[in-house]
């Protein structure tokens, strides 16, 4: 199953080592860490949950942490949806 799609108008911006999600339509700004920024970018690309977990695990050299990563991705995308940063979708 795919991750929920990112809401249009929300962009990722990196500035001086910090990551921000900017809602250019709603005017809200969220400061996020690199993990959250990566997960949001995966939502933008329409990646599947499995693909996102594998991508994060490989990218961060944490293949042995896949169960924890999966749980964190699910929690994070639900938070994105609550904040209006991702479109609503059926529960993962």
């Amino acid at each position: 199953m795919s991750l929920p799609r990112a809401t249009s108008g929300v962009i990722v911006q990196q500035q001086d080592g910090a990551f921000f999600l900017l809602d250019t339509e709603g005017g809200e700004v969220f400061r996020v860490n690199e993990t959250a920024a990566r997960i949001f970018e995966l939502c933008q690309s329409g990646t599947t949950l499995d693909g996102a977990v594998q991508s994060l695990a490989k990218g961060l050299n944490a293949v042995d942490q896949e169960p924890d990563i999966r749980a964190d991705v699910q929690r994070t995308v639900e938070q994105f949806q609550e904040l209006g940063l991702c479109e609503p979708s059926p529960s993962l």
Binding site: F30, V32, N33, E34, L60, N61
Partner: peptide, 12 residues
């Protein structure tokens, strides 16, 4: 090492 995602509503 994986670090859990963190989101904080807000900067420079």
């Amino acid at each position: 090492m994986y670090t859990n995602a963190q989101i904080v509503r807000v900067v420079l």
